[in-house]
Amino acid sequence: MRKCFAIVSVGLRQMLADPMYLVFTLGLPLMMTWAMSFLPKEAGIYEMASLGVLVMFVALNLITSAGSILEERQNGTWQRILTSATSYWAIMAGYFIRLFLVAATQAAILLLSGKFLFGAPWNHGYLELVVVLAIYIFAMTGLGLFLAGLLKTQGQVQAVAMAIVMIGTMLGDVFFPIENPSGVIKIIAAISPQSWAAHALRDILTLGVSLSSLVVPLLWMTGLGMLLIIAGVLRIKIEA
């Protein structure tokens, strides 16, 4: 466990030392959240936009942060960790916890700033919110690890991250409702964890639905996350 936390700690310190990372992870999403606060506070519209920002930036952050594994491969620190007296599973657990913590912190800051700085009219469903976000972050962390095993360069990570995030959010009925969607759009919305998460979060905040009504999205995101984590961890092991 100590070794896991050492991996978490060293990674976080490396990330936080990069000002661009902070701008990208917190500055930009905070600005977007603030901009969304000027939308009319009619039920559904504001939630859709501000939660869309949250869902999109958490996804973008997680996929690009997983690219840090590639960076470590290029720097040689990844190989050096693998030659240390640490089991592969402890190493991967460290990377998973690091990614999860970063995304959870980002999501918490965006939600709390929306509520307390920018006047979001949310006053119920906090437990449901935390559960859905935790499972959404879990699924996207799995996607990040999977891509880290699959892709070879940071450039590839950036390109694929943008493609997945843009397609999943813009066409996944996250920011704005799509009327009479085509078959392709329906498929994207049915697959995209961003779409499932955004709808679940919106339903919690506007309709006050309970967790028992969210079993399908929660199961889908958990299953997808587990599948991707297993595939990613095995793939990275083979690549190593």
């Binding site: 100590r2 070794k3 050492a6 991996i7 700690s9 060293v10 310190r13 490396q14 030392a17 990069d18 720097n75 040689g76 620190t77 190989q79 050096r80 960790i81 240390s84 007296a85 640490t86």
Partner: peptide
Amino acid sequence: PQEPALYSQLSAEANLRFWGTMNG
């Protein structure tokens, strides 16, 4: 390794503490 495999944003001491921890 041939090329230094270190965390450039951390101090020398922090790097060594990390590699020491990873080796038990």
